[in-house]
Simulated assay, not measured.
Amino acid sequence: MTADPTAWEQSSVMRVVPPLQPRKLAKVPFVELADGRLQGVVSSGSDIGRVYVSSIATGTHAYNCSTNNNRPCGGLLGAPCKHLRSLVDEAVVQYGADRVARYLRVEGEGITSGSELVSRLAGQHEPAPAAVVFSRFLRHLAYLELPVTTAPLAELHWFPASGAVR
Rank of each mutant, 00 (worst) to 15 (best):
A26T: 12
E9I: 11
V31D: 02
V16R: 14
E9V: 08
P29N: 06
A3Y: 01
A26M: 10
P5Y: 02
L20M: 12
P22A: 09
P22Y: 04
P19K: 01
E9N: 05
P19T: 02
D4F: 09
K24W: 08
W8K: 09
P18H: 03
P18C: 06
A34R: 14
P29H: 07
L20Y: 04
V28D: 02
L33R: 03
K27G: 03
S11T: 05
P5N: 03
V31R: 01
E32P: 00
Q21I: 10
P19F: 04
L33K: 02
P19E: 01
V31P: 01
V13I: 12
A34T: 02
K27E: 10
V31M: 04
L25A: 13
Q21G: 00
S11Y: 03
D4S: 13
A7G: 06
S12E: 07
E32K: 10
T6Y: 14
Q21R: 15
T6N: 13
A26R: 10
Q10L: 14
P22W: 06
E9K: 15
P18T: 04
V16D: 08
V17W: 08
L25I: 09
G36R: 04
D35H: 11
E32F: 00
Q21F: 12
D4L: 10
K27N: 07
A34Q: 11
V16E: 14
P19N: 01
G36Q: 06
P18R: 08
D35Q: 11
S11R: 05
V16N: 04
S11Q: 05
R15D: 10
L20V: 11
D4E: 14
V16M: 07
A3E: 06
L20I: 13
A7Y: 04
K24Y: 08
P18I: 03
A26I: 07
M14C: 09
G36P: 08
L20E: 12
P22K: 11
E9L: 15
R15H: 14
A34S: 14
R23M: 12
K24C: 07
E32A: 11
Q21H: 13
R15P: 15
V17Y: 05
A7L: 12
V17K: 14
R23N: 04
L20H: 08
L33P: 00
V13D: 09
L25N: 06
P29Y: 05
L20G: 09
P5Q: 04
P18S: 10
R23H: 06
Q10V: 05
L33H: 00
V28W: 00
K24I: 08
Q21W: 08
L25M: 08
V17A: 14
R15M: 12
E9R: 15
F30R: 05
